[in-house]
């Protein structure tokens, strides 16, 4: 028994050092050398301004921007330091109210648009930080954004297509549009 206790303690220490210190440090080192951009958060900079991560969504409520998914984080939406979903069940009346509220806001700024609204635009993401919307979700918003910015719908659509990522080999995953990168590009057009 005594020798088992000794072995248990010694092995616990060795394996802790191996898997808890050596392994993560090794990966951090290799990641830093080979993938410095990705390992540090795929951050976006413009004119030395740090604008966020290409992988972490931001809240947009201004009609001149494309809007992302509903975020369930608190105390502020798209809280990058406290991820959370809405966790609302399918039969919860609060869910229906939230969906209706989003529909109202979408219609308020785009009353002429009678197309059915893509589901991802009116529902919350799992992480509360979803950087993407579906292509349908982006196309639905093109008339509003184009009008607000005085651009043609074709111009806006071309930018949407530029920030669309497709399935691997056209098969795996879902095609999506990166909302933050899309909006950054739209803003840079305005400057010109």
């Amino acid at each position: 028994m005594k020798e088992q206790i000794r072995s248990a303690i010694l092995l616990f220490i060795i394996l802790s050092l191996l898997t808890g210190i050596f392994y993560p440090s090794f990966i951090t080192g290799v990641a830093y050398i080979f993938f410095p951009h990705q390992s540090n958060g795929s951050m976006l900079y413009q004119n030395n301004k740090f604008l966020g991560s290409a992988l972490i969504g931001q809240e947009f409520t201004d009609p001149k921007y494309f809007w992302g998914r509903i975020s369930g984080t608190s105390p502020v939406t798209y809280n990058g330091s406290s991820s959370s979903g809405s966790n609302l069940g399918p039969s919860n009346p609060v869910l229906i109210d939230k969906v209706k509220e989003r529909i109202r806001t979408l219609k308020e700024f785009d009353p002429g648009n009678t197309n059915p609204i893509p589901i991802d635009l009116v529902t919350s993401s799992a992480s509360g930080l979803d950087p993407h919307i579906s292509i349908a979700g982006a196309y639905y918003q093109i008339p509003r954004v184009a009008r607000m910015r005085g651009l043609t719908e074709e111009t806006v659509k071309a930018i949407v297509n530029k920030y669309t990522s497709h399935r691997i080999f056209g098969l795996i995953g879902e095609p999506v549009v990166n909302v933050l990168e899309l909006n950054l590009e739209l803003d840079s057009i305005k400057i010109k």
Binding site: I117, I119, V122, D130, I135, Y139, E174, P175
Partner: peptide, 21 residues
Amino acid sequence: LNIDQNVSAFQPGGNMEGKEA
């Protein structure tokens, strides 16, 4: 509610509450 939940080439459709795009 005039919401499009159908799967197409442009969106996954379905119950997207609590799911990532």
